[in-house]
């Protein structure tokens, strides 16, 4: 059975919109959560400004438990939680919830790594100038780590485009859903091709934006 392109194009546009919504919403929520966890992980580390071994270990282990789970399994595994919080396990918002959780743990690790690469001497200097731990976080750690952090988030964004396609296959909508139903289940190569091209364009754009922003901030 051939695809009716006249009705198909609006679906493509709609699906692309869903994919972009999933990625951007996840990026926003995941960043807020992930940056917070990453900062917490860094400042509670041994010898750091708010050292707290217990909290550090709990966060560290939690991240190590969540991160290795393949996303498609994670998605299904936390569906009861998704239903409890979002009210459904089908649709775009139901996909955003597990994507946010998975992304925030990844972002937390990236944030922690970026913060660890900051020269501890700079933090010591701020301390010596009378900065409080709170001031150190917002006026030293975040600005100093921002450039690499944006590159890290760009990397995450691209994984999110991948995640969104997976979420699509289990009822999340978006381009992944279109590719699966038309391309895979109906053996229509042309639909598959269109969605793949759109995904490539999205990835290229995200990478370009990330590179441009980080270059501006890092001045190189």
């Amino acid at each position: 059975m051939r695809v009716d392109w006249n009705t198909f194009w609006p679906r493509i546009v709609e699906s692309t919109g869903e994919t972009i919504l999933m990625v951007i919403a996840t990026l926003i929520f995941g960043s807020i959560l992930g940056i917070s966890i990453g900062l917490l992980l860094y400042v509670t580390r041994k010898g750091n400004i708010l050292e707290n071994q217990l909290l550090f270990q709990i966060l560290n282990i939690l991240i190590n438990i969540v991160r290795p789970i393949p996303f498609i399994i994670f998605l299904v595994a936390i569906s009861p939680l998704t239903r409890a919080i979002i009210g459904t396990t089908i649709g775009t918002w139901a996909a955003i919830f597990p994507m946010t959780i998975a992304a925030s743990f990844g972002i937390a690790r990236i944030v922690e790594n970026n913060l660890l690469s900051i020269d501890p001497g700079v933090v010591e200097a701020a301390k010596a100038m009378g900065a409080s731990p709170f001031q150190i976080i917002f006026t030293v750690l975040i600005p100093e780590a921002l450039g690499p952090l944006i590159l890290g988030l760009t990397f995450v964004t691209i994984s999110l485009i991948d995640f969104s396609a997976m979420a699509g296959t289990v009822g999340g909508g978006g381009l992944g859903h279109v590719a699966m139903t038309y391309g895979y289940q109906r053996f229509d190569g042309s639909v598959m091709l269109v969605t793949v091209v759109i995904l490539i364009i999205l990835v290229q754009f995200a990478q370009w934006l990330g590179n441009t922003l980080s270059r501006k901030i890092m001045r190189r």
Binding site: D119, G121, V122, E124, A125, P143, E144, L146
Partner: peptide
């Protein structure tokens, strides 16, 4: 400081 410890940002 020996290594100046200036804020690069």
């Amino acid at each position: 400081f020996q290594n100046f410890n200036l804020f690069t940002s």
